[in-house]
């Protein structure tokens, strides 16, 4: 574990310098991620702007939620983007071979290989939106609520990482799980809307099956209403641990089934 940590800066620097060969590409990616998110927030404004309030949710509160979700999403994007390659490509093309012949954890090597600095665009947009809407979101700010926000933001990273790991590892069984992963991952965008009013069934799925709702939406709802905020931290932590445990288990079982590609 120590060795992996010590090696990480080396991987980051290699990934960054390797990316420098394609500077323009990374730069355009960064801008486009940021622009996509801003446009999507504008869409929310168009929809919600005509209705002054949906239950407890004003547009300002929704915008704050929107910004909040971007931050863990961007952090996950920066560190574990390579999992998409696992889902779409690596298993099918036998590209895990070289990692398996080296004496450190193959999952670590695979994920550490890519450091996606273009995720910083998303991250910055998230932070800016949060800063703009924090004072008018209706949240009563205190040391406690900031702590809740920070902790839930941290656990929220694992909502994305865990889901990606679980569904990308399915590729060991079905060769290419990219489309499934994409579908499940995109459920995260529904956590930006007032799930409370979206119907019991869908809410249950977003809370207990694919817990984007529980980990990303629920903490902000609690902060706005001012009740159960610390409970939401606990639930987020539990969900993060459960997701990562399942993810690592599916990977571990899957890698034993890995059958490379013929040559």
């Amino acid at each position: 574990m120590l060795k992996e940590l010590k090696l990480y800066p080396k991987y980051v620097s290699m990934s960054l310098r390797s990316g420098l060969s394609y500077k323009a590409d990374s730069f355009i990616m960064m801008i486009s991620f940021a622009v996509t998110e801003i446009i999507s927030l504008a869409t929310v404004y168009l929809i919600v702007g005509s209705v002054p309030q949906i239950g407890i949710w004003s547009f300002n509160a929704l915008a704050f939620l929107f910004g909040f979700i971007l931050v863990p999403k961007a952090i996950d994007h920066i560190f574990t983007d390579e999992l998409w390659i696992l889902a779409y490509w690596a298993v099918r093309h036998g590209e895990l071979d070289i990692y398996l012949t080296r004496p450190i954890n193959p999952l670590y090597q695979f994920v550490a290989k890519t450091f996606k600095w273009d995720g910083i665009g998303e991250f910055a947009v998230g932070i800016v939106i949060m800063c703009i809407f924090a004072p008018i979101s209706g949240i009563a700010w205190s040391f406690g609520s900031v702590m809740v926000l920070l902790l839930c933001g941290f656990f929220g990273i694992f909502a994305f990482t865990g889901i990606k790991l679980i569904f990308a590892s399915l590729a060991f069984w079905i060769k290419s799980s990219g489309i499934i992963l994409n579908t499940v991952y995109n459920l995260s965008s529904y956590a930006k809307y007032p799930l409370k009013y979206m119907g019991k069934a869908f809410m249950s799925i977003m809370f207990y099956v694919i817990p984007f709702g529980l980990m990303l939406y629920y903490p902000i709802e609690c902060l706005i209403t001012g009740v159960n905020a610390w409970w939401s931290v606990l639930w987020s932590a539990i969900a993060a641990i459960v997701l990562m445990t399942i993810g690592l288990t599916v990977w571990t079982i899957g890698i034993r089934r890995y059958d490379s590609s013929g040559n």
Binding site: M14, R17, S18, G19, S21, Y22, E95, D97, I98, N263
Partner: peptide
Amino acid sequence: FGQKTQLWYDL
């Protein structure tokens, strides 16, 4: 492996 490389492609 003759058909795969472990070298970092862009560096």
